[in-house]
């Protein structure tokens, strides 16, 4: 039972590319080693626009998809702490990324969603100024996004 589950994971990992493939490949290793193998993708975190970020994550150009939900305030009083939740209703969601368009570096966070984990994450991010926030979802090898505008009264950078 358990080993067949592992096998499925391995097969899935074989289909991955770029960063996600790399992380998935780490899944080939026993749990303990996999943790140590998880690498931070400095390339993706240095990107400054959505197209580059997706490319660095190893993906094809994303399409907008309303099956993604972003829960965040319309107006954030403090750009330093803005709660953002993303839920994906797209089947076979594999990863969820949060990107902030007008931050110095676009990519905030990438979450890998293994089988058995809800396609939902909630965290808090910094926004430099009023901006569009993107949720980028990878599902069944394809990329989808949804954006939401958040107005910031006090920026989260500098100071």
């Amino acid at each position: 039972m358990n080993s067949s589950k592992e096998r499925r994971k391995v097969i899935k990992a074989g289909g991955g590319i770029g960063l996600l493939g790399l992380l998935a490949a780490a899944g080939l290793l026993p749990a303990g080693e996999a943790l140590a193998q998880q690498q931070w993708n400095s390339g993706a975190f240095g990107t400054r626009n959505l197209a580059d970020a997706v490319k660095a994550l190893g993906g094809t150009p994303p399409t907008e998809n309303k099956a993604i939900q972003i829960t965040a305030p319309d107006i954030a009083e403090n750009g330093l702490v803005v709660p953002v939740s993303v839920t994906s209703d797209i089947p076979k969601t594999e990863s969820i990324a949060i990107l902030v368009e007008k931050n110095p570096n676009l990519l905030s966070a990438v979450f890998e969603i293994p089988n058995g984990t809800d396609p939902f994450v909630s965290t808090r991010v910094k926004l430099a100024e009023s901006t569009d926030v993107y949720a980028l979802v990878k599902a069944d090898g394809k990329y989808y996004f949804l954006k939401k505008e958040i107005k910031v009264t006090l920026g989260g950078c500098g100071g």
Binding site: Q38, W40, T117, F120, V121, S122, R124, V125
Partner: peptide
């Protein structure tokens, strides 16, 4: 592993994370 994540510096100070 039930969740793995990579974060940049724009995640807020004293980070909060919620998943199921």
């Amino acid at each position: 592993t039930v969740l793995s994540a990579q974060w940049g510096p724009s995640v807020s100070k004293n980070p909060f994370l919620n998943f199921r």
